[in-house]
Design a protein around this nucleic acid. Structure first.
Lengths: 239, 239
DNA sequence: CGCGACCTTGAAGGTTGTCAACGGGCGTGG
DNA sequence: CCACGCCCGTTGACAACCTTCAAGGTCGCG
């Protein structure tokens, strides 16, 4: 049946199709600062939820009832093995999707790192809504592709980088999302354990690496969770 | 301008939108065995290319001119650092997308592992086509979400698994895509170096691990690239 | 003030990487 | 037909990086 549909479509030419112009061009959505968290329609369609720091938004392996959009705050998506090993797949920030998956269950748990505000969209209505609104479709697609690009970076980090490089990259990642200017302190928000679980290391190795950076003058620490990085390119060469 | 569009949409209710039913329901596309490689429309819209084993389809950092769909064969997507470290992000099989990214350049190179057949879609027409055909949209979306789920598995593998677990999982991955029944030999197609670069190990460690599996009776080897795994659950517990 | 969570540091050990040598399969060319 | 070279895979010895285990320190909060 689906095969038939495709066969019919085979006759169409892309030029014919492009006759009906979408509501907004892809470049509008993808290139600009426009984010899912700014979309009023989604707020209307879903239910807004707030989660306090360290509380869990949803649990790995539960039925994937909702799709979430981060409005405010920061979250971590983590996986646990049966024997207790923990891996953080992703830090999520405003505009990011959570629980975008092809499976019927959540492939990871999500916990609030800071106070968190999200929109919860029941999966069925999310599918319908996204499919039917061209502008939203583009934005969701761009968001998911960005997530894919980011996770490919993480794969490189986990597979082929030294501890120093991993910690350096995590600092850069966190700095990027807190809009930190070089020279200004980064407010880490996450614990050493979070950095470790994101980068496939242990807490001790993260701590030692940060201490080494401090000794070498590559970073300065104000509190335990406030770090100044004068020059990120110096961290990069910390192999 | 985009903001305006979203504001207007804010007034709409999902129920209104669902009035216009899409060409086929999501479940049709997502659940069935239907794959992008079976879609005749794409063959019509794009150009079919064949790549011999070990040749490169496209290079990391080149302009992302095309979107590719694997029709036949197997490919590897790999990243190289400036100092020569290599990481395979993904093995691609029929139905998989290659070069799905939000960036304007390819985030990895793709090389044919076996003889490879792909459809090359110029990016602009791919965007238009996918956006305007509901059925295709669902299928592309499901394919990308599946890729995301798979890469999350790889993150767990790279971040928190031992060498033995990694190699075991790669064997399972390859077996899955060659439709191998337990007891039947798996035709690896990939080299030890590929397994190593996928799982963040070295060739030597992969080789040693396979030898250990052989000694422990967990696998049997016919040729160097043909392996019999009597019981995958035994490999899983190889921690 | 004391407790607990988090962070740091040290010492020892293990898993994996590095370097090196060897073996087998295969294609090429004498 | 066989010899040679090359690529790939295996194995060993050793070193390095990171983990593990353990102890102590800092900070915030009741």
């Amino acid at each position: 049946m689906l095969q038939t549909a495709f066969s019919q479509m085979g006759e169409l030419q892309p030029t014919e199709l492009s006759g009906e112009a979408p509501a907004c061009r892809q470049s509008d959505c993808a290139a600009s600062a426009c984010r899912l968290s700014d979309c009023k329609m989604l707020r209307a369609a879903g239910q807004t939820r707030t989660v306090s720091a360290r509380d869990t938004l949803f649990w790995q392996d539960d039925d994937a009832e909702f799709l979430f959009i981060v409005i405010k705050g920061m979250a971590r998506a983590c996986r646990l093995t049966s024997d207790g090993r923990r891996q953080i797949n992703r830090f999520a920030f405003p505009g990011d999707l959570l629980a975008a998956t092809n499976a019927g269950f959540y492939p990871y748990s999500v916990e609030a790192v800071t106070g968190l505000e999200v929109i919860a969209l029941p999966r069925a209505s999310a599918d319908t809504l996204i499919d039917q609104v061209a502008c939203l479709r583009k934005l969701v697609s761009a968001t998911i592709l960005k997530e894919l690009d980011e996770v490919h970076d993480q794969v490189m980090l986990l597979g082929r980088m030294t501890a120093a490089e991993r910690v350096g990259h995590v600092l850069a990642l966190l700095a990027k999302h807190t809009q930190t200017v070089p020279g200004q302190p980064i407010d880490l928000a996450v614990s050493r354990a979070d950095i470790a679980d994101y980068s496939g290391l242990t807490v001790e190795t993260v701590s030692r690496t940060l201490s080494r950076f401090k000794r070498e003058g590559k970073i300065r620490m104000l509190g335990q969770r406030e770090i100044i990085v004068p020059d990120f390119s110096e961290l990069a060469e910390a192999a």
